[in-house]
Design a protein around this nucleic acid. Structure first.
Lengths: 234, 234, 234, 234
DNA sequence: GATGAATGAGGATTCATTCAT
DNA sequence: CATGAATGAATCCTCATTCAT
């Protein structure tokens, strides 16, 4: 259930003036998302949010009782609760495990990573400790469904003898970490990747897939036992 | 060269008052690191930092002229400029590429990831846009040397025919992303990983290494061509 | 051109809230003038200024970005740039030099000295070294035009053989010093004049004029040569 | 009775180290005088005073229990209680009234105006309202004795038919205002006089005496009746 | 005595929130 | 509904004063 649905009617009817009026909360949420992602919660001023949405400071408080509630609305609004939908998609998926992983990562990028909503990931990272209830919400709505989905994909590949046996509790991160990193790189002003080499998302995903798929393939030679580092100094 | 070294002499000599004088900046930086990492720059109150360091508000300003300078000092202090040292270590490393990668990731975790200094990664992510000059500094001191080191490790493995040919501009992220993710997971209050399944760092690293090393191995069967997703819907 | 004119429209129209909006800067400047003159810049608290203007602390900062800018505005606002206007008045003045001096001093008192704006003189004295740019401004806007005006008045009298020849570089102070003193006496809590004998401004001016006009008169016997003090001890 | 006499023994005996020690309060008073005159009471930091006196902040509080007491000591120390002494000087003065006035003004300048102690005049002007008890003290010690002295000088001249009859309550200011102005000009960073024409104190005094002495002379033609200004506009 | 590290009350400034228009 | 002027709690920072060494 999307928060903005409560306000933003999709019917195109009505004059431009009226549509704007009705669109206010959505515009505020959009503006707030951008600013919260860019500057963080505390460093974002409500007046700036209002200004970017083209309304006055007071108007913001007509729709959101406080800055904190605005923040929560931004997060809730932009959390893709689409995992059930995706789950069903994969239920009927016909193809190899590799296809499925490939499709999954690309779809995630296209539908979430590449959109403004992906900023929520950075936001949650930065603000989780300041908003524990949002963190819980995020756990329930994103982390757990997301991991479940990935587990099922990997399990399917293992069952089909396409992937080698894996400890799924940890293997999921072989898919999650690269995607998370990509999203963060996009929103973190160049402190994740080199700022002098453009990071092309599609190439990045292809590169990661190349490693991961070979890395979990059942047909590939097993990786050498991870020997303890020979002479690790303190 | 560590910032706090300039202040914090280890000799226990001197009376209580004087000894404290020399320990203050270090104590303040430690307290500030924790709080900035936990709450972010703007949401951290200087009085709280001072209290955690066991001093009063005013004392903090005896050592740092402003909250912003305190923040910069925290970042500078905790950025490990140890890449050169590591580079030399690897120069003389005798072992397989896999050993080297294994050693590298474990060493990174032991020396950086597992320490409080790793919080800087989260901090930079959150505050990079608010402190562009720090972001540049981080680029120069961490991102670029870190990537260089990893490139050299991968190149060595390729040259020795241990690793398959890789586009190094992207392959580096196969090592970086998992480590970054681990560090962030540690500092982000459960919004990176499931909060009901303990994420054991060593197991995580082992799992990642298992995938990565098989994934870049020259002897493993090549990963199936990453076919374009068969029926990706808009 | 008065600063407050930019804000304080005289039309009484508008509701209470709106009317106040336009009156605020003027009210704040008035309150600030009084307090700065009475206590000095540093010893005046912005909250006190706001309270005297009948608003809260925050409101002051709606109109002036800082205490210092408030101070500058107070000075600029109250510096009478009326010397050009006065110059023109004197251009067409028909009367003796004595009339002119008499008129000048009385007009100065009535239009500046007797008003609250005269406090600026004390302010500039006290704060000139703390606000060098304001001191320059005061030089340009008050000191130089004022001296020019007086020079022209004296020169006219000399040209008409009403006044004896005078070194104008110093003679101007025979008019300026008494007026300055009067203004300071008004604003300095009794440390210029005896506090048990009321200093009546008009009588003071008449007395000063009596001495000055006879003192510069061409028809009066020349003052005895200012003999070096006969037995000045160290 | 000079305050610093309590501390500053004049005997030159003792080593350099010891003499410095004994001289501390005097050095602090000197430094404080300069800074209070330059910046005002509130804007002067005790640390700056101490630094200028070459001691540490804590040392200042060994000699003066508070910043306010330091300020009072500065004022008391520098208020010349020499009027009685001067009165006796004039008791036996043999010479014309003009000589006496001339001597008086020059002596005032040499003994007070030209010294650093003259800064007290500016200080009292700026701070009188903040330190009412000092203002009273100044009244008793400076204003009243000073005016008495001048009254006696003028009265003597009138009695000897050298000066025309004068309303002494106001005539005193014909001597006081010019001297006060000169002192203020010296301490007010160029906001009293033009900053592009050097104000030579001796020439200034000569010029003022020229006007004043002719202005109060009994032999000079009376100044024209100070006609009310013919057409003073509102 | 002398020092200067430490303190914390006090003051400038910000900004989320309210509310009269 | 929308506005933006007004508010005042919250926060950074200063600096007179204290006190252990």
């Amino acid at each position: 259930m999307s928060f903005s649905k409560l306000f933003c009617k999709n019917e195109p009817g009505g004059g431009k003036r009226e549509r704007r009026k009705e669109a206010r909360p959505g515009e505020l949420l959009d503006a707030a998302l951008d600013l919260f992602v860019e500057k963080g919660f505390a460093a974002t001023r409500v007046e700036e949010v209002a200004a970017r949405a083209g309304v006055s400071k007071g108007t913001l408080f007509l729709y959101f009782p406080s800055k904190e509630e605005l923040f929560k609305a931004v997060v809730r609004e932009n959390i893709s609760g689409r995992f059930k939908e995706w789950g069903e998609e994969f239920q009927t998926f016909e193809g190899t495990g590799a296809d499925m992983v490939t499709y999954c990562m690309n779809a995630w990028w296209d539908r979430v990573g590449a959109t403004r909503a992906s900023g929520i990931t950075k936001l949650m990272m930065s603000e989780a400790t300041n908003f524990p209830e949002l963190a819980s919400f995020y756990q329930q709505e994103v982390i757990k469904p997301g991991q479940s989905l990935i587990r099922r994909i990997l399990q399917r590949g293992i069952d089909r003898n396409e992937f080698r046996p894996l400890d799924l509790d940890y293997a999921v991160y072989s898919l999650i970490a690269p995607m998370m990193f990509l999203i963060l790189a996009k929103h973190s002003g160049g402190v994740c990747a080199r700022d002098d080499i453009v990071l092309d998302p599609k190439k990045y995903i292809a590169s990661q897939l190349g490693v991961i798929l070979q890395g979990i393939s059942a047909t590939a030679a097993p990786a050498p036992a991870t020997a303890p580092s020979p002479h690790l100094p303190t």
